[in-house]
Design a protein around this nucleic acid. Structure first.
Length: 203
DNA sequence: GACAAGATTAGCT
DNA sequence: GCTAATCTTGTCT
């Protein structure tokens, strides 16, 4: 039972970053993992705007790491933090803008056994993917995917076969020391896979 | 070449 | 709820 439409095309990722961050909610991220297929519904995102956002890695600095953010929309930006963890971003907008959307949490749909193997610490299904680095671990995403393309054949995003109804809420972003005032975090209201956090109130 | 900080997580109080 | 763990990247000397 695949129930999967065609992958989102390049055009989707070239639009407005904040709009894309909202529209990605409820979409399905698919990863071909060897013989296996992993699927998850995106339930939480954050937008990073290169031009005016001090929290964005591309803000007023073009470095080896942030140069990926200036690629055209649909490019994957994976980076390493805190010595252990990866965060998975999708570059948005036209080439040269420095915008990206961070995938913070997904709801596991397929390939649960593989995810559990990769996340031995997770005590339950919810803990498999309810955090940006947890999602990366469960899906086996690491630095090798940096600069890859989200419209490729091994990893891509599709719309669900059935359009679900859900409410989108927004809040301040999490884990930042700068740019905390921008309400650029978006999540599906009342979805249990959204990261639990003190900022989970709607703004 | 050295140093400080970081888009987090897990484990302990 | 609070803090240590851990190492890459960017910046400064």
């Amino acid at each position: 039972m695949t129930n999967i439409n065609k992958p989102l095309q390049r055009k989707f990722f070239l639009g407005d970053t904040l709009k894309i961050a909202r529209e990605l909610l409820g979409k399905i991220i698919v990863k071909h993992d060897g013989k296996n297929i992993l699927k998850g519904k995106i339930v939480e995102t954050e937008a990073y705007i290169g031009e005016h956002d001090p929290a964005c890695h591309a803000f007023q600095k073009f470095t080896d790491r942030s140069s990926v953010l200036y690629e055209k929309g649909g490019t994957i930006y994976v980076y390493f933090v805190y010595g252990n963890y990866f965060c998975f971003n999708i570059v948005t907008g036209k080439e040269g803008t420095g915008d990206a959307v961070l995938i913070r949490a997904v709801e596991p749909l397929e390939g649960l056994e593989i995810m559990k193997n990769r996340r031995p610490k997770a005590k339950n299904t919810r803990e498999l993917t309810n955090g940006p680095s947890k999602f990366c671990m469960a899906f086996g995403l690491d630095g090798k995917f940096n600069r890859n393309d989200i419209t490729g054949k091994d990893i891509y995003i599709t719309s669900p076969a059935k359009r679900e109804k859900f409410e989108i809420a927004s809040s301040k972003r999490i884990g930042l020391n700068v740019g905390v005032d921008f309400p650029y975090r978006f999540f599906i209201k009342n979805n249990e896979f959204v990261t639990k956090h003190k900022f989970n109130n709607t703004i």
